[in-house]
Design a protein around this nucleic acid. Structure first.
Lengths: 236, 236
DNA sequence: TCAAGCTCAAAAGTAATACTTATTCAAGAA
DNA sequence: TTCTTGAATAAGTATTACTTTTGAGCTTGA
């Protein structure tokens, strides 16, 4: 996707909208954008087109490009997620994504238990073991890496592309959580045990067991975050 | 969004990709697209740009526009969902969406119980009553309407934009289910009772109750679909 | 023979310009 | 006051020209 100007302009404009610097209802004119970014009409138009397909704006003749209400945005677009995570909306986005995760991952575990390939089941168990080891060794960074790999693999193994697509999102949440001090100093033994339990349940095709164990994981994560948020109030 | 040519070309091309008529790896050249659709370079370029942001294609200089692997598609894009539901991928898409729904809606119910406005709680109870009435009267079409409204309201009331955005998806699934004979002739009494239970739990802020009752609903839906699918095998 | 590097051409990216269409706003007539 | 009409405006569409990247084939030298 080697285009330069396009990507550049899109990033700036999109981020501005995603973080509310351009409030809903604000009107832009395309020639004004050309001037502001020193880009050609072609580039300006295509950027607007893209924003439009993401639901961030609508274009009306004789009026201009209107910033849409957040309710109409495509909140699952990877770009929009990134803009929010990188901007002032970070805290809210992280909360939103965590909630989504808490709903999706138990289901994903269930379907993974139903449909994962033998190879995937094996790798999942292996990752479970690695998590135990690195947790014991208190190697937080590699623990995080394996944690992300574990959830990624599980979502992919669910055989549902909509679940699989959320793996990048989950990775962001997990990484953002540790980098924001919303995580205990060392991995909780129970959480690790639950990961191993999920892997084992998936391995033997125990759908209810996998779903239940995964629910334990996300519930715990939810509690941790709630606790962390209430202690350092509004931890932006 | 009054553009004509653009939308038209996008729809045809996007649908072709979404339904596998243009296999991953297939290469298009933009001047070839211009010719094929009788559109200008501008339109062709913008269409390609949009497809690119949806993850359906990537463009490489000196090569052309390459159809991407489905794994890279943005499966939450409303357009893509529509193309799949309207095309040969309908059955698979419906399954995928139903699974997503089964994960998300119980969580949404939980957060709705936590955060719904008084007005929303009231409307939810009202919709519950309506569902009972129309079920008793065996008025299937208005029952469907209220059912959709119920789930839509609940997802919106969850206060999570990513949940709220799925309301259109849920509506498609519910509508598609009835129009495809994947639904019993008349609403099941238990399902109706569960809807009422969800509304009541949300009303009094019973998070666990709301989540649990909603899980009952989606589990039942899952079983119905599984049964229907296994009876008329591969019901495309 | 083979690998490194060069040249060329193909196709996307960018720019500029002219023309078309729809829509708002306002002026003027009923 | 309200409806009609028309002009102004900004997006939509089309065309053309120029730039940049890059894959492929060719040349050259080890």
């Amino acid at each position: 996707m080697g285009s330069d100007r396009h990507e550049e302009v899109l990033d700036v404009l999109g981020a501005a909208i995603a973080n509310g610097e351009l409030a809903p209802g604000a009107v832009l004119r395309s020639d004004e954008l050309q001037e502001r970014f020193g880009a050609s009409r072609t580039v300006a138009r295509e950027v607007v087109r893209v924003l439009e397909t993401m639901g961030l704006t609508t274009s009306r003749r004789r009026v201009g490009v209107i910033v849409s209400d957040p309710a109409g945005w495509n909140h699952y677009d990877p770009r929009l997620i990134r803009w929010q995570l990188d901007g002032s909306e970070r805290a809210g986005a992280l909360r939103t994504l965590t909630e989504l995760r808490s709903g999706v991952e138990p289901s994903a575990a269930r379907f993974a238990a139903l449909r994962a390939t033998p190879e995937e089941r094996g790798r999942l168990r292996a990752l479970g073991h690695r998590l135990e080891e690195t947790a014991r060794a208190r190697d937080l960074t590699t623990f995080l890496g394996h944690d992300i790999a574990f959830h990624d693999l599980l979502l992919t193994a669910s055989g549902n592309p909509m679940f699989a697509q959320l793996s990048t999102v989950v990775a962001e949440v997990l990484a953002g959580r540790t980098s924001h001090g919303l995580m205990p100093e060392e991995p909780q033994p129970e959480a690790v045990a639950l990961h191993v339990e999920v892997a084992a349940a998936v391995d033997v095709g125990d759908v209810d067991g996998a779903e239940c164990a995964m629910r334990g994981i996300v519930d715990q994560a939810r509690e941790e975050i709630a606790a962390a948020v209430s202690s350092n109030l509004g931890g932006q």
